[in-house]
């Protein structure tokens, strides 16, 4: 069976054709990331989650955050619930861990700027 995908590993947006029965053999990719993406997307799709948390004492009232790795697509809204509970205080440095090991995924939510 051939699955058609658009690779989201980078902004190139390669049109992939994936032969699921042939160990997810990929055509149409321009780099190896496409191969990895195709297999993962068709077995356990994952995404980076970006959002904000409440920050006190900063120049703005929200601090942007991101997961420092991809989490399962199914967990995105659960991760958002965790993110929405957090409140931090300035100063924060870019990369500071905001939520350690969110939902036992081994992924942290980290600050994506200093404030």
């Amino acid at each position: 069976m051939i699955e058609k995908l658009i690779c989201i590993a980078c902004p190139m947006g390669c049109h992939l054709e994936v032969d699921v029965e042939d160990d997810y053999r990929v055509e149409g990719n321009q780099c190896n990331r496409g191969v990895l993406y195709a297999k993962k997307e068709l077995t356990n799709p994952t995404r980076i989650v970006t959002s904000t948390v409440v920050i006190k004492g900063g120049i703005y009232r929200r601090l942007p955050v991101k997961t420092n790795g991809e989490v399962s697509k199914k967990l995105i809204f659960k991760v958002m619930e965790e993110i929405n509970k957090v409140e931090v205080s300035s100063p924060i440095k870019c990369g500071d861990v905001i939520i350690k090991n969110v939902l036992n995924t081994n992924i942290d939510v980290v600050a994506s700027r200093s404030m």
Binding site: C10, P11, T50, T52, P64, K66, C94, S112, R113
Partner: peptide
């Protein structure tokens, strides 16, 4: 604040604020 910046310049995927 979404990711997708920097793959060419930094060879890694950053958010806008990180890139800036």
């Amino acid at each position: 604040i979404h990711n997708g910046f920097g793959l060419k310049v930094f060879k890694e995927e950053l958010t806008g604020p990180e890139y800036a």
